[in-house]
Amino acid sequence: MDIKNIRAALATAAGTVVLPDGTRLQGYARVPGSPDPPCAYPAQSDGTYGDTLDDTVAATVTLRILTGRGEDEAAQELLDALLAADGPSSVRAAIESDPTLGGLCSDLAVTGWSGYESYDVGGVERYGAELTVEVLG
């Protein structure tokens, strides 16, 4: 499993999301120093080496989505749209549209989200949430 390319592919998939205003979500392959919301990037990844009987390598990637400032009602509404289960603004639907990430993995699933909170990114408070993406090698 090439976790670097998997993170990049997740960012590319997130970048296909069409926002309600017709623009696209910005996807970053790495944690950006100065993100420009609305955006998504892999904030963390954890993995296991062959914990299953067939020796499959697995990873859990935490994809952080930032929409704007925490006190901004529009940022909270945009986050609702990005966390929808399906539709043109759904990050989950965009990621799961190619469950092999172009052949980088055997399967993946977006299993949930957490947050709806402010994150300190580069000294600036941004509103967002985190998606959990389970990836099988």
Rank of each mutant, 00 (worst) to 15 (best):
E134H: 09
E130I: 10
D21F: 04
P38E: 01
T16H: 02
A9G: 04
L25Y: 10
G115L: 13
A94H: 07
Y41F: 15
E96A: 06
L131A: 03
T48A: 15
L136I: 00
L104T: 11
V91S: 03
T48F: 13
P20A: 09
P88M: 07
L104P: 00
A29P: 14
G102P: 03
A84T: 05
P99V: 14
D72F: 01
S34N: 15
Y119K: 03
V135P: 11
S97I: 12
Q44T: 08
T100E: 13
G22C: 11
G27D: 10
A59S: 15
R64I: 12
C105F: 02
D46M: 05
G47W: 02
D54F: 10
I3Y: 05
P35C: 15
D21L: 04
D55G: 11
R69K: 02
G103W: 04
L83Y: 03
D72N: 13
L19V: 05
Y119M: 06
L79Y: 09
A75M: 07
T48R: 14
S106A: 08
V17W: 11
G112V: 02
Q44V: 09
G22K: 05
P38H: 12
S97P: 09
D120K: 10
L79I: 05
S90F: 04
A109E: 12
P38D: 08
L104N: 05
I3A: 11
D51A: 07
T67M: 12
S89C: 11
V18W: 02
D72P: 08
A94S: 13
R30F: 06
R7V: 04
Y41K: 11
P99E: 08
E73C: 13
D86N: 09
N5F: 14
E130D: 15
L131P: 00
L19H: 01
G128K: 00
C105A: 07
C105K: 06
A40N: 05
A11V: 10
A81G: 06
A59V: 11
Q44D: 15
E117N: 10
S89W: 01
I6P: 00
P32M: 08
V61Q: 07
D36Y: 14
V110I: 12
V91A: 05
S118L: 10
S106P: 02
G27W: 06
S89R: 02
C39V: 06
G50R: 01
R7S: 09
P20Y: 10
D2G: 06
G47R: 08
A29L: 03
T52W: 07
R30L: 12
L136W: 14
T132I: 09
E130K: 02
P38Y: 03
L108Q: 04
A85N: 15
D2M: 13
V57I: 15
V17G: 06
P32F: 00
Y28K: 14
A94Q: 07
A59H: 13
R24E: 01
C105H: 07
L78Q: 13
